[in-house]
């Protein structure tokens, strides 16, 4: 089930209090549980949008939180904790994406994977119109080739800069710009096929 968050900037519904992060840094396992509870749906969703496979997304989420736990000491609070966590999570998801890609290339020689759709789920909270829109969009995103879906998710859903997208994907900024451009055109065509002139 989807849970609409309150924030419009992509951070989880409620901001993680600094005090909670500090307690986690000091090894407080109870505080860690609270921090996980406050953030794991959004982190899982980010991973799922990149990977589309629920099992892969769950594994990437676990990897992200393991890295977050180990790397908490390096979080200095310059950015929001959620932003830092999103970066860690997108790195984990992309790492999983790359290893899946390598495995698929070895096994079948295919460039793109067989896409699985994000499981459709109802939203009792959302309005009827919004529900249709979100489902149609998620279905279209799931049908995009992985390379295109990844850049759309990072750039247009989570608002990362071109520099950051390029860095995460290990490509040049020019290549990232071109990929984003093509992905946007393709997604638009998929969404509005009947309305194109």
């Amino acid at each position: 089930m989807r849970r609409p968050s309150d924030h419009r900037d992509g951070t989880p519904a409620e901001r993680v209090p600094d005090e909670l992060v500090e307690r986690c840094k000091n090894g407080d396992e109870r505080a860690w549980s609270q921090l996980v509870e406050a953030t794991y749906r959004d982190v899982y969703t980010l991973c799922l949008r990149i990977l589309t496979d629920p099992n892969d997304a769950a594994e990437a989420t676990q990897d992200a939180y393991l890295k977050a736990w180990r790397g908490l000491g390096s979080f200095r609070g310059d950015a929001l904790f959620e932003t830092w966590l999103y970066r860690v999570a997108s790195n984990s998801a992309l790492s999983k994406y790359r290893s899946r890609k390598r495995r698929q290339s070895r096994e079948s020689g295919l460039q793109d994977d067989v896409l699985t759709e994000i499981p459709a789920s109802g939203s009792v909270e959302a309005t009827a119109g919004a529900r249709i829109e979100v489902q149609a969009l998620e279905a279209a995103l799931a049908r995009l080739p992985e390379q295109h879906r990844t850049v759309i998710v990072l750039r247009d859903v989570y608002g990362m800069s071109i520099e950051e997208v390029a860095d995460k994907l290990g490509i040049s900024e020019t290549a990232a710009k071109v990929r984003v451009h093509r992905a946007r055109k393709r997604l638009k065509d998929m969404l509005f096929q009947g309305e194109d002139r």
Binding site: R2, R3, R8, T45, A58, I118, E138, D156, Y158
Partner: peptide
Amino acid sequence: GSLASLKTHAVEPPPELF
């Protein structure tokens, strides 16, 4: 606009993940 709104729609993770 729709893509930006996706940020506010979390998908429920598997129950054991928490």
